[in-house]
Design a protein around this nucleic acid. Structure first.
Length: 577
DNA sequence: ACATCGACTTGAACGTAAGGGT
DNA sequence: ACCCTTACGTTCAAGTCGATGT
Protein backbone atom coordinates (compact mmCIF):
# COMPACT_ATOMS: atom_id res chain seq x y z
CA UNK A 1 0.00 0.00 0.00
CA UNK A 2 2.80 2.38 0.95
CA UNK A 3 4.64 1.50 -2.22
CA UNK A 4 1.55 2.13 -4.28
CA UNK A 5 1.08 5.50 -2.65
CA UNK A 6 4.67 6.38 -3.34
CA UNK A 7 4.25 5.44 -6.95
CA UNK A 8 1.09 7.51 -7.28
CA UNK A 9 2.85 10.42 -5.64
CA UNK A 10 5.66 10.13 -8.14
CA UNK A 11 3.21 10.04 -11.03
CA UNK A 12 1.47 13.08 -9.66
CA UNK A 13 4.71 14.98 -9.45
CA UNK A 14 5.71 13.94 -12.96
CA UNK A 15 2.40 15.18 -14.26
CA UNK A 16 2.89 18.42 -12.39
CA UNK A 17 6.26 18.94 -14.02
CA UNK A 18 4.60 18.72 -17.41
CA UNK A 19 2.04 21.28 -16.32
CA UNK A 20 4.78 23.59 -15.13
CA UNK A 21 6.50 23.31 -18.46
CA UNK A 22 3.58 24.35 -20.52
CA UNK A 23 2.34 27.15 -18.32
CA UNK A 24 5.32 29.44 -18.04
CA UNK A 25 3.56 32.04 -20.21
CA UNK A 26 0.74 32.33 -17.67
CA UNK A 27 -1.81 30.49 -19.77
CA UNK A 28 -4.23 28.38 -17.77
CA UNK A 29 -5.55 26.13 -20.52
CA UNK A 30 -5.33 25.38 -24.22
CA UNK A 31 -8.82 24.15 -24.90
CA UNK A 32 -12.06 25.16 -23.22
CA UNK A 33 -15.54 24.18 -24.32
CA UNK A 34 -18.83 24.62 -22.45
CA UNK A 35 -22.55 25.15 -22.94
CA UNK A 36 -22.74 28.58 -21.34
CA UNK A 37 -24.79 29.53 -18.28
CA UNK A 38 -28.30 28.58 -17.26
CA UNK A 39 -30.29 31.81 -17.21
CA UNK A 40 -32.73 32.70 -14.45
CA UNK A 41 -36.27 31.57 -15.32
CA UNK A 42 -38.45 34.41 -16.68
CA UNK A 43 -40.91 36.08 -14.35
CA UNK A 44 -44.28 34.39 -14.02
CA UNK A 45 -47.01 36.90 -13.14
CA UNK A 46 -49.10 36.07 -10.10
CA UNK A 47 -52.51 34.46 -10.58
CA UNK A 48 -55.39 36.95 -10.47
CA UNK A 49 -56.60 35.93 -7.04
CA UNK A 50 -53.42 37.06 -5.35
CA UNK A 51 -53.96 40.70 -4.56
CA UNK A 52 -51.91 43.67 -3.51
CA UNK A 53 -53.42 46.43 -1.39
CA UNK A 54 -52.31 49.97 -1.04
CA UNK A 55 -53.75 51.93 1.85
CA UNK A 56 -56.38 49.21 2.23
CA UNK A 57 -57.47 49.44 -1.41
CA UNK A 58 -56.91 46.83 -4.11
CA UNK A 59 -54.25 47.85 -6.61
CA UNK A 60 -53.33 45.86 -9.74
CA UNK A 61 -49.63 46.21 -10.40
CA UNK A 62 -47.91 46.19 -13.78
CA UNK A 63 -45.77 43.11 -14.32
CA UNK A 64 -42.41 44.84 -13.66
CA UNK A 65 -43.63 46.47 -10.45
CA UNK A 66 -45.31 43.26 -9.39
CA UNK A 67 -42.13 41.26 -9.87
CA UNK A 68 -40.13 43.52 -7.58
CA UNK A 69 -42.97 43.52 -5.08
CA UNK A 70 -42.84 39.72 -4.97
CA UNK A 71 -39.14 39.88 -4.05
CA UNK A 72 -40.10 41.89 -0.99
CA UNK A 73 -43.11 39.70 -0.22
CA UNK A 74 -40.93 36.59 -0.26
CA UNK A 75 -38.77 38.09 2.46
CA UNK A 76 -41.59 39.39 4.63
CA UNK A 77 -40.87 36.97 7.46
CA UNK A 78 -37.25 37.95 7.51
CA UNK A 79 -35.89 40.51 9.91
CA UNK A 80 -34.39 42.35 6.95
CA UNK A 81 -37.71 43.77 5.86
CA UNK A 82 -38.14 45.56 9.18
CA UNK A 83 -34.91 47.51 8.81
CA UNK A 84 -35.21 51.12 7.76
CA UNK A 85 -32.28 51.01 5.38
CA UNK A 86 -33.63 47.90 3.68
CA UNK A 87 -37.10 49.36 3.25
CA UNK A 88 -35.77 52.68 2.04
CA UNK A 89 -33.48 51.13 -0.57
CA UNK A 90 -36.12 48.69 -1.72
CA UNK A 91 -38.73 51.38 -2.05
CA UNK A 92 -36.42 53.63 -4.04
CA UNK A 93 -35.55 50.89 -6.53
CA UNK A 94 -39.10 49.59 -6.66
CA UNK A 95 -40.36 52.99 -7.77
CA UNK A 96 -38.05 52.83 -10.76
CA UNK A 97 -40.00 49.81 -12.00
CA UNK A 98 -43.43 51.39 -11.54
CA UNK A 99 -45.57 52.99 -14.23
CA UNK A 100 -46.16 56.70 -13.75
CA UNK A 101 -49.65 55.92 -12.52
CA UNK A 102 -48.29 53.50 -9.93
CA UNK A 103 -45.72 56.04 -8.89
CA UNK A 104 -48.36 58.63 -8.23
CA UNK A 105 -50.57 56.24 -6.29
CA UNK A 106 -47.90 54.53 -4.20
CA UNK A 107 -46.18 57.13 -2.09
CA UNK A 108 -45.59 55.39 1.22
CA UNK A 109 -44.12 51.93 1.66
CA UNK A 110 -45.80 51.60 5.04
CA UNK A 111 -49.19 51.62 3.33
CA UNK A 112 -48.26 48.65 1.15
CA UNK A 113 -49.80 45.35 2.05
CA UNK A 114 -47.85 42.38 0.67
CA UNK A 115 -49.44 39.73 2.86
CA UNK A 116 -51.50 37.98 0.18
CA UNK A 117 -48.41 37.62 -1.95
CA UNK A 118 -46.46 36.33 1.00
CA UNK A 119 -49.19 33.83 1.88
CA UNK A 120 -49.30 32.68 -1.71
CA UNK A 121 -45.58 31.89 -1.78
CA UNK A 122 -45.79 30.08 1.53
CA UNK A 123 -48.64 27.99 0.15
CA UNK A 124 -46.58 27.30 -2.97
CA UNK A 125 -43.64 25.99 -1.02
CA UNK A 126 -46.00 23.96 1.16
CA UNK A 127 -47.51 22.47 -1.99
CA UNK A 128 -44.05 21.63 -3.23
CA UNK A 129 -43.40 19.70 -0.06
CA UNK A 130 -46.69 17.85 -0.43
CA UNK A 131 -46.00 16.74 -4.00
CA UNK A 132 -46.23 13.05 -4.80
CA UNK A 133 -43.13 10.95 -5.08
CA UNK A 134 -43.59 10.79 -8.79
CA UNK A 135 -43.70 14.53 -9.23
CA UNK A 136 -40.67 14.97 -7.03
CA UNK A 137 -38.82 12.38 -9.04
CA UNK A 138 -39.66 14.23 -12.25
CA UNK A 139 -38.20 17.44 -10.90
CA UNK A 140 -35.14 15.60 -9.74
CA UNK A 141 -34.65 14.06 -13.15
CA UNK A 142 -35.06 17.43 -14.81
CA UNK A 143 -32.43 18.94 -12.51
CA UNK A 144 -30.13 16.06 -13.26
CA UNK A 145 -30.61 16.63 -16.98
CA UNK A 146 -29.71 20.31 -16.64
CA UNK A 147 -26.69 19.37 -14.56
CA UNK A 148 -25.52 16.92 -17.19
CA UNK A 149 -26.00 19.45 -19.96
CA UNK A 150 -24.68 22.63 -18.35
CA UNK A 151 -22.78 21.42 -15.30
CA UNK A 152 -19.69 20.20 -17.09
CA UNK A 153 -17.14 21.58 -19.47
CA UNK A 154 -14.07 20.28 -21.22
CA UNK A 155 -10.82 21.89 -20.21
CA UNK A 156 -7.86 20.54 -22.11
CA UNK A 157 -8.25 16.79 -21.94
CA UNK A 158 -10.55 16.59 -18.96
CA UNK A 159 -14.27 16.76 -18.48
CA UNK A 160 -14.63 18.99 -15.43
CA UNK A 161 -17.46 19.86 -13.10
CA UNK A 162 -18.51 23.52 -13.13
CA UNK A 163 -18.97 25.19 -9.75
CA UNK A 164 -21.89 27.54 -10.35
CA UNK A 165 -23.40 27.28 -13.79
CA UNK A 166 -26.55 29.30 -13.05
CA UNK A 167 -26.78 33.05 -13.51
CA UNK A 168 -27.85 34.64 -10.24
CA UNK A 169 -31.59 35.37 -10.38
CA UNK A 170 -32.93 38.88 -9.75
CA UNK A 171 -33.93 39.74 -6.21
CA UNK A 172 -33.25 42.10 -3.36
CA UNK A 173 -29.65 42.49 -2.28
CA UNK A 174 -29.01 41.09 1.18
CA UNK A 175 -25.81 42.55 2.53
CA UNK A 176 -24.23 41.24 5.71
CA UNK A 177 -24.25 43.34 8.84
CA UNK A 178 -25.08 47.00 8.60
CA UNK A 179 -24.88 47.29 4.84
CA UNK A 180 -25.81 50.64 3.30
CA UNK A 181 -27.12 48.94 0.14
CA UNK A 182 -29.34 46.28 1.69
CA UNK A 183 -32.71 46.01 -0.05
CA UNK A 184 -31.56 47.38 -3.39
CA UNK A 185 -32.81 45.62 -6.50
CA UNK A 186 -30.42 43.11 -8.01
CA UNK A 187 -31.47 43.30 -11.61
CA UNK A 188 -32.11 40.45 -13.99
CA UNK A 189 -29.10 39.44 -16.07
CA UNK A 190 -29.82 39.12 -19.80
CA UNK A 191 -27.70 37.40 -22.44
CA UNK A 192 -26.49 40.79 -23.67
CA UNK A 193 -24.94 41.37 -20.19
CA UNK A 194 -22.97 38.14 -20.36
CA UNK A 195 -19.40 37.57 -21.51
CA UNK A 196 -18.51 34.09 -22.64
CA UNK A 197 -14.97 32.79 -22.41
CA UNK A 198 -13.97 29.66 -24.31
CA UNK A 199 -11.34 28.56 -26.79
CA UNK A 200 -11.57 29.60 -30.41
CA UNK A 201 -11.55 26.05 -31.66
CA UNK A 202 -14.39 24.96 -29.35
CA UNK A 203 -18.09 24.77 -30.06
CA UNK A 204 -19.27 28.13 -28.72
CA UNK A 205 -22.26 28.26 -26.39
CA UNK A 206 -25.43 29.47 -28.10
CA UNK A 207 -27.41 32.43 -26.76
CA UNK A 208 -31.19 31.93 -26.53
CA UNK A 209 -33.27 32.41 -29.71
CA UNK A 210 -32.93 35.86 -31.16
CA UNK A 211 -30.52 37.16 -28.50
CA UNK A 212 -26.82 37.84 -28.38
CA UNK A 213 -24.08 37.56 -25.81
CA UNK A 214 -22.34 40.77 -24.82
CA UNK A 215 -19.09 39.27 -26.01
CA UNK A 216 -17.40 35.98 -26.75
CA UNK A 217 -13.73 36.05 -25.89
CA UNK A 218 -10.89 33.58 -25.89
CA UNK A 219 -8.69 34.48 -22.94
CA UNK A 220 -6.70 31.52 -21.69
CA UNK A 221 -4.90 33.63 -19.08
CA UNK A 222 -8.01 33.33 -16.88
CA UNK A 223 -9.97 30.37 -15.57
CA UNK A 224 -13.56 31.63 -15.81
CA UNK A 225 -16.11 30.48 -18.37
CA UNK A 226 -18.75 33.20 -18.02
CA UNK A 227 -18.82 36.63 -16.43
CA UNK A 228 -21.22 39.53 -15.94
CA UNK A 229 -21.23 42.79 -14.04
CA UNK A 230 -23.51 42.99 -11.06
CA UNK A 231 -25.39 46.24 -10.51
CA UNK A 232 -25.15 46.73 -6.73
CA UNK A 233 -21.39 47.21 -6.32
CA UNK A 234 -20.55 47.17 -10.02
CA UNK A 235 -18.30 44.17 -9.45
CA UNK A 236 -17.80 41.27 -11.79
CA UNK A 237 -19.30 37.86 -11.13
CA UNK A 238 -17.91 34.66 -12.61
CA UNK A 239 -18.75 31.12 -13.44
CA UNK A 240 -15.75 28.96 -12.61
CA UNK A 241 -14.88 25.32 -12.12
CA UNK A 242 -15.68 23.12 -9.16
CA UNK A 243 -13.04 22.63 -6.43
CA UNK A 244 -12.55 19.06 -7.67
CA UNK A 245 -11.19 20.36 -10.97
CA UNK A 246 -7.55 20.11 -11.91
CA UNK A 247 -7.14 23.85 -12.13
CA UNK A 248 -8.51 24.50 -8.63
CA UNK A 249 -6.78 21.51 -7.09
CA UNK A 250 -3.37 22.55 -8.33
CA UNK A 251 -3.85 26.08 -7.09
CA UNK A 252 -4.89 24.71 -3.72
CA UNK A 253 -1.83 22.50 -3.56
CA UNK A 254 0.39 25.48 -4.43
CA UNK A 255 -1.19 27.46 -1.62
CA UNK A 256 -0.18 24.85 0.94
CA UNK A 257 3.29 24.55 -0.53
CA UNK A 258 3.73 28.29 -0.06
CA UNK A 259 2.60 27.94 3.55
CA UNK A 260 5.14 25.13 4.02
CA UNK A 261 7.86 27.39 2.68
CA UNK A 262 6.81 29.94 5.29
CA UNK A 263 7.26 27.25 7.92
CA UNK A 264 10.90 26.96 6.93
CA UNK A 265 11.61 30.66 7.42
CA UNK A 266 9.07 31.74 9.98
CA UNK A 267 11.62 31.83 12.82
CA UNK A 268 13.74 34.23 10.83
CA UNK A 269 10.73 36.43 10.04
CA UNK A 270 9.63 36.48 13.65
CA UNK A 271 13.08 37.50 14.79
CA UNK A 272 13.00 40.18 12.13
CA UNK A 273 9.71 41.77 13.15
CA UNK A 274 10.69 41.67 16.82
CA UNK A 275 13.80 43.56 15.85
CA UNK A 276 11.68 46.03 13.88
CA UNK A 277 9.65 46.89 16.99
CA UNK A 278 12.70 48.93 17.96
CA UNK A 279 13.13 50.68 14.62
CA UNK A 280 13.46 54.43 14.63
CA UNK A 281 11.08 54.60 11.72
CA UNK A 282 7.44 54.72 12.68
CA UNK A 283 6.27 52.97 9.50
CA UNK A 284 8.61 50.07 10.21
CA UNK A 285 7.36 49.74 13.77
CA UNK A 286 3.76 49.82 12.62
CA UNK A 287 4.47 47.22 9.99
CA UNK A 288 6.16 45.01 12.57
CA UNK A 289 3.37 45.27 15.13
CA UNK A 290 0.72 44.62 12.48
CA UNK A 291 2.63 41.59 11.29
CA UNK A 292 2.83 40.34 14.86
CA UNK A 293 -0.97 40.54 15.10
CA UNK A 294 -1.39 38.77 11.78
CA UNK A 295 0.98 36.02 12.85
CA UNK A 296 -0.15 35.62 16.44
CA UNK A 297 -3.89 36.23 16.10
CA UNK A 298 -4.38 35.09 12.51
CA UNK A 299 -5.99 38.41 11.60
CA UNK A 300 -6.83 39.12 7.97
CA UNK A 301 -4.81 41.69 6.04
CA UNK A 302 -7.49 44.38 6.14
CA UNK A 303 -7.74 46.22 2.84
CA UNK A 304 -9.32 49.64 2.95
CA UNK A 305 -12.92 49.83 1.79
CA UNK A 306 -14.90 52.54 0.13
CA UNK A 307 -16.95 54.28 2.78
CA UNK A 308 -20.71 54.10 2.31
CA UNK A 309 -20.44 51.31 -0.25
CA UNK A 310 -20.13 48.43 2.19
CA UNK A 311 -20.61 47.55 5.84
CA UNK A 312 -18.01 49.04 8.16
CA UNK A 313 -15.68 46.13 8.82
CA UNK A 314 -11.94 45.98 9.32
CA UNK A 315 -8.92 43.69 9.27
CA UNK A 316 -5.44 44.20 10.68
CA UNK A 317 -4.16 47.09 8.56
CA UNK A 318 -7.48 48.92 8.71
CA UNK A 319 -7.91 48.67 12.51
CA UNK A 320 -8.93 51.95 14.08
CA UNK A 321 -8.13 53.41 17.47
CA UNK A 322 -11.64 52.59 18.68
CA UNK A 323 -11.07 48.88 18.04
CA UNK A 324 -8.44 48.29 20.70
CA UNK A 325 -8.08 49.06 24.38
CA UNK A 326 -4.85 48.92 26.31
CA UNK A 327 -4.64 47.68 29.87
CA UNK A 328 -1.21 48.00 31.56
CA UNK A 329 -2.59 45.58 34.15
CA UNK A 330 -5.56 43.32 33.98
CA UNK A 331 -6.22 40.76 36.70
CA UNK A 332 -2.93 38.96 37.06
CA UNK A 333 -1.64 39.84 33.59
CA UNK A 334 0.40 42.73 32.30
CA UNK A 335 0.17 44.61 29.00
CA UNK A 336 -3.15 43.33 27.84
CA UNK A 337 -4.66 44.41 24.51
CA UNK A 338 -8.39 44.07 24.10
CA UNK A 339 -9.63 43.74 20.52
CA UNK A 340 -13.23 44.39 19.65
CA UNK A 341 -14.16 44.94 16.04
CA UNK A 342 -16.29 43.66 13.19
CA UNK A 343 -14.34 41.58 10.70
CA UNK A 344 -15.30 39.94 7.43
CA UNK A 345 -19.05 39.33 7.10
CA UNK A 346 -19.49 41.63 10.11
CA UNK A 347 -18.50 38.83 12.45
CA UNK A 348 -17.35 40.23 15.75
CA UNK A 349 -13.78 39.64 16.78
CA UNK A 350 -13.35 39.91 20.51
CA UNK A 351 -10.14 38.91 22.23
CA UNK A 352 -7.93 39.89 25.11
CA UNK A 353 -4.29 39.16 24.63
CA UNK A 354 -1.28 39.89 26.81
CA UNK A 355 1.48 41.21 24.58
CA UNK A 356 5.13 41.90 25.08
CA UNK A 357 6.02 45.15 26.72
CA UNK A 358 7.62 46.51 23.57
CA UNK A 359 4.47 45.90 21.53
CA UNK A 360 2.39 47.55 24.23
CA UNK A 361 4.62 50.61 24.31
CA UNK A 362 4.47 50.84 20.53
CA UNK A 363 0.68 50.68 20.57
CA UNK A 364 0.59 53.49 23.13
CA UNK A 365 2.76 55.48 20.77
CA UNK A 366 0.52 54.76 17.76
CA UNK A 367 -2.50 55.93 19.73
CA UNK A 368 -1.05 59.27 20.73
CA UNK A 369 -3.04 62.32 19.65
CA UNK A 370 -5.58 60.28 17.73
CA UNK A 371 -9.35 60.24 17.62
CA UNK A 372 -11.28 56.98 18.02
CA UNK A 373 -12.07 56.88 14.29
CA UNK A 374 -8.45 57.36 13.21
CA UNK A 375 -6.41 54.50 11.78
CA UNK A 376 -4.29 52.65 14.33
CA UNK A 377 -1.62 52.00 11.70
CA UNK A 378 -1.65 55.31 9.88
CA UNK A 379 1.60 54.63 8.04
CA UNK A 380 0.59 51.20 6.80
CA UNK A 381 -1.74 49.50 4.35
CA UNK A 382 -1.98 46.02 2.87
CA UNK A 383 -0.06 47.00 -0.23
CA UNK A 384 2.94 48.22 1.80
CA UNK A 385 2.78 45.18 4.04
CA UNK A 386 2.59 42.70 1.20
CA UNK A 387 5.43 44.35 -0.68
CA UNK A 388 7.54 43.95 2.43
CA UNK A 389 6.50 40.32 2.83
CA UNK A 390 7.29 39.61 -0.79
CA UNK A 391 10.86 40.74 -0.12
CA UNK A 392 11.15 38.40 2.84
CA UNK A 393 9.95 35.32 0.99
CA UNK A 394 8.86 34.67 -2.57
CA UNK A 395 5.09 34.43 -2.75
CA UNK A 396 4.56 35.56 0.83
CA UNK A 397 1.48 37.69 1.54
CA UNK A 398 -0.51 38.37 4.69
CA UNK A 399 -2.97 35.56 4.13
CA UNK A 400 -0.26 32.93 3.98
CA UNK A 401 0.16 33.37 7.73
CA UNK A 402 -3.43 32.32 8.26
CA UNK A 403 -2.91 29.21 6.16
CA UNK A 404 0.39 28.42 7.86
CA UNK A 405 -0.83 28.96 11.41
CA UNK A 406 -4.04 27.06 10.78
CA UNK A 407 -2.26 24.04 9.32
CA UNK A 408 0.55 23.93 11.84
CA UNK A 409 -1.97 24.22 14.67
CA UNK A 410 -3.95 21.28 13.32
CA UNK A 411 -0.83 19.18 13.07
CA UNK A 412 0.29 20.04 16.61
CA UNK A 413 -3.13 19.55 18.10
CA UNK A 414 -3.58 16.20 16.41
CA UNK A 415 -0.26 15.07 17.82
CA UNK A 416 -1.20 16.28 21.26
CA UNK A 417 -4.80 15.11 21.44
CA UNK A 418 -4.76 11.70 19.77
CA UNK A 419 -4.18 8.86 22.19
CA UNK A 420 -3.11 5.66 20.46
CA UNK A 421 -5.46 3.31 22.26
CA UNK A 422 -8.66 5.33 22.25
CA UNK A 423 -11.61 4.10 20.19
CA UNK A 424 -12.49 5.41 16.73
CA UNK A 425 -15.26 7.70 18.04
CA UNK A 426 -12.81 9.11 20.58
CA UNK A 427 -10.27 9.67 17.82
CA UNK A 428 -12.86 11.51 15.80
CA UNK A 429 -13.63 13.69 18.80
CA UNK A 430 -9.92 14.41 19.06
CA UNK A 431 -9.81 15.32 15.40
CA UNK A 432 -12.77 17.64 15.73
CA UNK A 433 -11.15 19.24 18.75
CA UNK A 434 -7.99 19.90 16.79
CA UNK A 435 -10.12 21.31 13.97
CA UNK A 436 -11.95 23.41 16.56
CA UNK A 437 -8.73 24.90 17.90
CA UNK A 438 -8.06 26.15 14.37
CA UNK A 439 -11.59 27.48 13.89
CA UNK A 440 -11.26 29.42 17.14
CA UNK A 441 -7.91 30.80 16.05
CA UNK A 442 -9.41 31.96 12.76
CA UNK A 443 -12.58 33.25 14.49
CA UNK A 444 -14.89 31.11 12.39
CA UNK A 445 -18.18 31.55 14.13
CA UNK A 446 -21.71 30.59 13.35
CA UNK A 447 -25.05 31.54 14.78
CA UNK A 448 -25.97 28.83 17.26
CA UNK A 449 -28.43 26.60 15.39
CA UNK A 450 -32.03 27.61 16.11
CA UNK A 451 -32.81 24.14 17.37
CA UNK A 452 -29.61 23.74 19.35
CA UNK A 453 -31.11 23.54 22.84
CA UNK A 454 -33.73 21.08 21.75
CA UNK A 455 -31.34 18.86 19.85
CA UNK A 456 -29.01 18.90 22.86
CA UNK A 457 -31.88 17.84 25.06
CA UNK A 458 -32.86 15.08 22.68
CA UNK A 459 -29.35 13.76 22.75
CA UNK A 460 -29.27 13.91 26.53
CA UNK A 461 -32.52 11.94 26.68
CA UNK A 462 -30.97 9.31 24.49
CA UNK A 463 -27.94 9.17 26.76
CA UNK A 464 -30.11 8.80 29.83
CA UNK A 465 -32.03 6.00 28.21
CA UNK A 466 -28.84 4.30 27.15
CA UNK A 467 -27.56 4.60 30.68
CA UNK A 468 -30.70 2.94 32.04
CA UNK A 469 -30.41 0.25 29.45
CA UNK A 470 -26.79 -0.28 30.44
CA UNK A 471 -27.46 -0.72 34.13
CA UNK A 472 -30.36 -3.04 33.35
CA UNK A 473 -28.18 -5.16 31.10
CA UNK A 474 -25.41 -5.16 33.68
CA UNK A 475 -27.87 -6.47 36.22
CA UNK A 476 -28.86 -9.18 33.78
CA UNK A 477 -25.22 -10.07 33.28
CA UNK A 478 -24.75 -10.37 37.01
CA UNK A 479 -27.84 -12.53 37.22
CA UNK A 480 -26.59 -14.74 34.43
CA UNK A 481 -23.28 -15.12 36.19
CA UNK A 482 -24.86 -16.21 39.45
CA UNK A 483 -27.03 -18.64 37.58
CA UNK A 484 -24.02 -20.04 35.78
CA UNK A 485 -22.17 -20.47 39.06
CA UNK A 486 -25.11 -22.44 40.35
CA UNK A 487 -25.82 -24.62 37.34
CA UNK A 488 -22.49 -24.76 35.48
CA UNK A 489 -24.19 -25.84 32.30
CA UNK A 490 -23.57 -24.81 28.71
CA UNK A 491 -26.81 -22.91 28.38
CA UNK A 492 -26.05 -20.57 31.27
CA UNK A 493 -22.49 -20.15 30.07
CA UNK A 494 -23.81 -19.05 26.71
CA UNK A 495 -26.17 -16.68 28.45
CA UNK A 496 -23.28 -15.03 30.33
CA UNK A 497 -21.46 -14.56 27.03
CA UNK A 498 -24.53 -13.08 25.37
CA UNK A 499 -25.03 -10.63 28.21
CA UNK A 500 -21.36 -9.75 28.36
CA UNK A 501 -21.46 -8.89 24.68
CA UNK A 502 -24.63 -6.88 25.14
CA UNK A 503 -23.06 -4.84 27.95
CA UNK A 504 -20.04 -4.18 25.80
CA UNK A 505 -22.17 -3.10 22.86
CA UNK A 506 -24.26 -0.76 24.97
CA UNK A 507 -21.17 0.68 26.59
CA UNK A 508 -19.83 1.48 23.16
CA UNK A 509 -23.09 3.04 22.05
CA UNK A 510 -23.22 5.10 25.22
CA UNK A 511 -19.69 6.30 24.78
CA UNK A 512 -20.40 7.22 21.19
CA UNK A 513 -23.42 9.25 22.26
CA UNK A 514 -21.42 10.98 24.97
CA UNK A 515 -18.72 11.85 22.47
CA UNK A 516 -21.35 13.26 20.17
CA UNK A 517 -22.83 15.36 22.94
CA UNK A 518 -19.46 16.76 23.96
CA UNK A 519 -18.58 17.49 20.37
CA UNK A 520 -21.87 19.22 19.70
CA UNK A 521 -21.78 21.27 22.88
CA UNK A 522 -18.24 22.47 22.22
CA UNK A 523 -19.22 23.28 18.66
CA UNK A 524 -22.26 25.36 19.47
CA UNK A 525 -21.00 28.60 17.99
CA UNK A 526 -17.99 27.38 16.07
CA UNK A 527 -18.00 26.64 12.35
CA UNK A 528 -15.48 23.98 11.34
CA UNK A 529 -16.22 23.95 7.63
CA UNK A 530 -14.35 27.02 6.54
CA UNK A 531 -11.04 26.04 8.06
CA UNK A 532 -11.38 22.48 6.87
CA UNK A 533 -12.06 23.61 3.33
CA UNK A 534 -9.73 26.58 3.04
CA UNK A 535 -6.97 26.58 5.63
CA UNK A 536 -5.99 23.07 6.63
CA UNK A 537 -3.50 21.26 4.43
CA UNK A 538 -5.58 18.16 3.66
CA UNK A 539 -2.46 16.00 3.65
CA UNK A 540 -2.22 16.44 7.42
CA UNK A 541 -5.67 14.92 7.83
CA UNK A 542 -5.02 12.18 5.30
CA UNK A 543 -1.82 11.22 7.08
CA UNK A 544 -3.58 11.18 10.43
CA UNK A 545 -6.38 9.02 9.09
CA UNK A 546 -3.88 6.55 7.66
CA UNK A 547 -1.81 6.48 10.78
CA UNK A 548 -4.73 5.66 13.06
CA UNK A 549 -6.81 3.59 10.65
CA UNK A 550 -9.74 5.95 10.82
CA UNK A 551 -12.01 5.62 7.78
CA UNK A 552 -11.54 8.78 5.74
CA UNK A 553 -15.32 9.13 5.37
CA UNK A 554 -15.42 10.08 9.06
CA UNK A 555 -13.34 13.16 8.34
CA UNK A 556 -14.24 14.13 4.79
CA UNK A 557 -17.63 13.75 3.13
CA UNK A 558 -18.00 12.95 -0.56
CA UNK A 559 -17.55 16.51 -1.82
CA UNK A 560 -14.55 17.05 0.40
CA UNK A 561 -12.98 13.83 -0.77
CA UNK A 562 -13.43 15.00 -4.34
CA UNK A 563 -11.90 18.36 -3.59
CA UNK A 564 -8.96 16.80 -1.78
CA UNK A 565 -8.46 13.87 -4.13
CA UNK A 566 -4.93 15.11 -4.83
CA UNK A 567 -4.04 14.93 -1.14
CA UNK A 568 -5.68 11.56 -0.57
CA UNK A 569 -3.58 10.29 -3.44
CA UNK A 570 -0.34 11.86 -2.32
CA UNK A 571 -0.05 11.80 1.44
CA UNK A 572 1.23 8.86 3.41
CA UNK A 573 1.01 8.40 7.13
CA UNK A 574 4.39 10.01 7.71
CA UNK A 575 3.50 13.23 5.92
CA UNK A 576 4.74 16.33 7.72
CA UNK A 577 3.32 19.73 6.94
C1' DA B 1 1.57 57.54 -4.86
C1' DC B 2 -2.98 56.49 -5.15
C1' DA B 3 -7.45 54.77 -7.00
C1' DT B 4 -9.81 51.40 -9.46
C1' DC B 5 -10.35 47.01 -11.68
C1' DG B 6 -10.18 42.07 -12.34
C1' DA B 7 -9.61 37.48 -10.83
C1' DC B 8 -9.72 34.53 -7.52
C1' DT B 9 -10.39 32.72 -2.48
C1' DT B 10 -12.92 32.74 1.67
C1' DG B 11 -17.29 32.95 4.36
C1' DA B 12 -21.79 32.41 6.71
C1' DA B 13 -26.51 31.44 5.79
C1' DC B 14 -29.90 29.04 3.48
C1' DG B 15 -32.90 25.32 1.51
C1' DT B 16 -33.48 20.66 1.01
C1' DA B 17 -32.39 15.71 0.29
C1' DA B 18 -31.03 12.00 2.77
C1' DG B 19 -30.66 9.15 6.51
C1' DG B 20 -31.54 7.64 11.21
C1' DG B 21 -35.00 6.65 14.67
C1' DT B 22 -39.69 5.29 15.89
C1' DA C 1 -43.38 3.83 6.13
C1' DC C 2 -43.15 8.05 8.02
C1' DC C 3 -41.32 11.84 10.38
C1' DC C 4 -37.87 14.77 11.92
C1' DT C 5 -33.46 16.27 12.02
C1' DT C 6 -29.25 17.33 10.31
C1' DA C 7 -25.65 17.23 7.18
C1' DC C 8 -24.86 18.54 2.71
C1' DG C 9 -24.67 21.19 -1.28
C1' DT C 10 -25.76 25.72 -2.95
C1' DT C 11 -25.71 30.52 -2.94
C1' DC C 12 -23.78 34.74 -3.31
C1' DA C 13 -21.54 38.29 -0.46
C1' DA C 14 -17.13 39.80 1.11
C1' DG C 15 -12.61 39.34 1.40
C1' DT C 16 -7.33 39.26 -0.68
C1' DC C 17 -4.01 40.75 -3.82
C1' DG C 18 -1.78 41.87 -8.17
C1' DA C 19 -2.37 44.63 -12.33
C1' DT C 20 -3.53 48.67 -14.56
C1' DG C 21 -4.65 53.36 -15.02
C1' DT C 22 -4.08 58.43 -13.62
Amino acid sequence: NGKKAKKRKQEYEDEEEEEEERSTDGSKWKFLEHKGPVLAPPYEPLPGHVRFFYDGKLLRLSAPAEEVATFFAKMLDHEYTTKDMFRKNFYKDWRKEMTSEEKSKITDINKCNFTEMSEYFKAQSEARKQMSKDEKLKIKEENERILQEYGFCVMDNHKERIGNFRIEPPGLFRGRGDHPKMGMLKRRIRPEDIIINCSKDSKHPKPPQGMRWKEVRHDNKVTWLVSWTENIQGSIKYIMLNPSSRIKGEKDWQKYETARRLKKCVDRLRAQYREDWKSKEMRVRQRAVALYFIDKLALRAGNEKEEGETADTVGCCSLRVEHIKLYPKMDDQEYVVEFDFLGKDSIRYYNKMPVEKRVFKNLQLFLENKQPEDDLFDRLNTSILNKHLQELMDGLTAKVFRTYNASITLQQQLKELTSPDESIPAKILSYNRANRAVAILCNHQRAAPKTFEKSMQNLQTKIDEKQKQLSATRKQLKGAKTEHKASHDDRSKKMVEVKRKAVQRIEEQLMKLQMQATDREENKQIALGTSKLNYLDPRISVAWVKKWDVPIEKIYNKTQREKFAWAIDMAEEDYEF
